[in-house]
Design a protein around this nucleic acid. Structure first.
Length: 593
RNA sequence: GGGGCCGUAGCUCAAUUGGUUAGAGUACCGGCUUGUCACGCCGGUGGUUGCGGGUUCGAAUCCCGUCGGCCUCGCCA
């Protein structure tokens, strides 16, 4: 029986008691069916919800067809909306009515499914990705991607309303030194040469400013060929934005307005402005990381001076080598020996030596340390507890070593302990700006300076004079936006003077020849009247992940890659034919054994 | 490249810790069923325990290797 599926009168989540008596046409997927031999029920689902269909033997054709249905068959039906009376189902929005079907059209049959759509069982993620189109049918996934649309729309509207122009930038572009590994695309027309997919449209948006567009914003894909993580995919989406004739404050103000808009449109929340700010130095001191989660305490305490001179080799060696000793104080009975041993193991896995710790107790003669490395501390127990605010029952985790290592390990411990203690508040959105980063970071392995952000970040004017003499001391005009411990956006005021840009390249070890080869277009542009400018990029995927409370970036990308950068749905990447390689003058080396 | 967790019917899991023919729910097939809504009831199909090797009288279980998935360090301007 043909039903005009192109003339649906309603969606499956729409019908209410007020519609009783109307004749309606619905189409969708069979969520479940319940065959009673006589009366048969089918729950019909589309992205708006579920409507119960009732089939009775007096409509014998439709009834017979209904009894053959399976989950996820696609059907269209026409029938009358009737009240369910005493059989109302309060669990669903349409539960007061059902549709008494007179005609059914089975549009498409569904083979047995690799996993069920209509339950909430956690299926293996590799299978979900292989059949991503089925996973996306699930209501929670529909919700995530509609939220993603809301966020993207809010951002786009906001920037358009504020005079920003959206212009596309090339995907086939030039490989640049510094930064992440590039995805390369071989050129057929010029064999032996390669395009790179952009890590971000950074240079193009600067050229837009030099071109006089004044305000540019684009939602754009970016590509980085680095190892994947929970929150890192090889291709991801940014809101990329740039403004001319601005200082740091101007960009941050515009961004704050956008953040407010995102929370309003996507979550219905009013975020108070301005957002708090913290220097990178303070963040590292207090939290050991430049993207601190400020929803809980457990801050790092520096005890280097207090423990100096203690007869404890582990600390003394660290201090003698120019390092520091810091600690975290945490309370609660959940920090059992088993738990702390587990944390020690985790640090070893990260390359750490161990996790010296002790418990604070109330002894006969006052406060004392009781376990672990207690004996070394006894001389300064009371003083130390007072300095770091430790009370009986607390555990004190110490970390001696190089400053950067101490920060890394204690940040890990802080986050893990907070999770174990269950003290991280949910439904709290701690946004803050991190500013005044060091312009350059010393790369110990390569023995050279590297940009903390990127080579186009402008130094603070008052630090410019140290660029040659003491590059490590120079702070920059960058700003990172952090939400609950995740970097959500990062940007800076850019260098708009050719001499400063050349100077920075030189300090980074990029020779004049290399700079000319890789960045001639930028240096050229800076010669021809570049306005002061700056901007920022938001990680759209991360925003959606946070706002949707998703477990992984994969959950908010329609067709994501696995950890080995494979798409289980398409099986990309894959080999190509010899003819394709020949056309590009490429040969594949044999794989090493 | 390093560290860790995992891999058993299509799917989610179990298997008394090395012991008989590897079970259950669900899905699928057949039958019954007129108020269900995770409908119910009866019956049935379905397994190279990821793969390869080893130890053992005997391996899903122990060992080695390998493949795949996830988390993580390095890496990610």
């Amino acid at each position: 029986m043909a039903v005009a599926y192109n003339q649906r009168t309603h969606r499956c989540g729409e019908l209410r008691k007020a519609h009783v008596g109307q004749t309606v046409t619905l189409a969708g997927w069979v969520n479940t069916s319940r065959d009673h031999g006589g009366m048969t029920f089918v729950d019909l689902r589309d992205h708006t919800g579920i409507t119960q269909l009732r089939f009775t033997p007096d409509k014998s054709t439709a009834h017979a067809a209904a009894r053959t249905l399976h989950n996820e068959d696609v059907i269209a039906v026409t029938g009358q909306v009737v009240s369910r009376g005493e059989w109302t189902n309060p669990k669903i929005a349409t539960g007061e009515i059902e549709v008494e079907v007179t005609e059914i059209d089975v549009l498409s049959r569904c083979d047995p499914l690799p996993f069920q759509i209509n339950d909430e069982l956690d299926v293996g993620e590799d299978l979900l990705l292989k059949y991503r189109f089925l996973h996306l049918r699930r209501p929670e996934m529909q919700g995530i991607f509609r939220l993603r649309n809301t966020v993207a729309k809010a951002i786009r509207e906001y920037f358009h309303e504020h005079g920003f122009v959206e212009i596309e930038t090339p995907f086939l572009t030039k490989s640049t030194p510094e930064g992440a590994r590039d995805y390369l695309v071989p050129s057929r027309v010029r064999p032996g040469t390669f395009y790179a997919l952009p890590q971000s449209p950074q240079l193009f948006k600067q050229l837009f400013m030099i071109a006089g567009f004044d305000r540019y914003a684009q939602i754009v894909r970016c590509f980085r060929d680095e190892d994947l993580r929970l929150d890192r995919q090889p291709e991801f989406t940014q809101l990329d934005m740039e403004m001319a004739f601005v200082q740091r404050e101007d960009v941050m103000n515009v961004v704050e307005g956008c953040v407010k808009r995102i929370f309003k449109d996507a979550m219905g929340l009013d975020i108070p402005l301005p957002l708090p700010r913290m220097t990178e130095h303070e963040a590292m001191e207090r939290f050991g990381i430049d993207r601190p989660d400020t929803r809980f305490g457990l801050e790092l305490r520096d005890v280097t001076e207090l423990v100096r001179g203690l007869d404890f080799n582990v600390f003394r060696d660290a201090i003698d080598a120019g390092g520091v000793v810091k600690c975290i104080v945490a309370g609660g009975e959940k920090l059992t020996r088993k738990v702390t041993d587990g944390l020690t193991e985790e640090l070893r896995g990260m390359g750490g030596a161990g996790l010296p710790l002790t418990k604070v107790a109330q002894g006969a003669a006052g406060i004392e340390f009781q376990t672990g490395i207690a004996k070394f501390f006894q001389p300064i127990a009371a003083k130390l507890c007072q300095a770091v605010g430790a009370k009986p029952g607390d555990t004190v985790f110490f970390m001696p070593g190089k400053y950067a290592d101490v920060c890394k390990y204690l940040h890990h411990i802080r986050t893990r302990v907070a999770g174990i203690l269950g003290i991280i508040p949910e439904n709290q959105w701690n946004l803050l700006w991190i500013i005044d980063f060091p312009l350059l970071t010393w790369d110990e392995e390569e023995k050279r300076w590297a940009s903390t952000h990127h080579p186009f970040t402008a130094p603070l004017d008052e630090d410019l004079h140290m660029l040659e003499t003491d590059p490590g001391k120079v702070r920059d005009k960058a700003y990172d936006l952090v939400l609950n411990g995740t970097e959500m956006a990062g940007g800076s005021i850019r260098i708009h003077r050719k001499d400063v840009q050349s100077q920075v390249f030189r300090i980074l070890g990029i020779s004049d020849e290399e700079a000319k080869e890789k960045f001639e277009f930028l240096l050229d542009a800076l010669r021809f009247g570049a306005p002061p400018h700056g901007g920022i990029a938001f990680g759209l995927d991360r925003w959606v992940m946070k706002l949707a409370n998703a477990n992984s970036l994969r959950d908010v990308i329609a067709f994501p890659k696995t950890q080995r950068a494979v798409c289980p749905l398409t099986n990309a990447p894959s080999t190509v034919s010899k003819a394709q390689l020949d056309e590009l003058f490429l040969t594949i080396k044999p794989l090493p054994k």
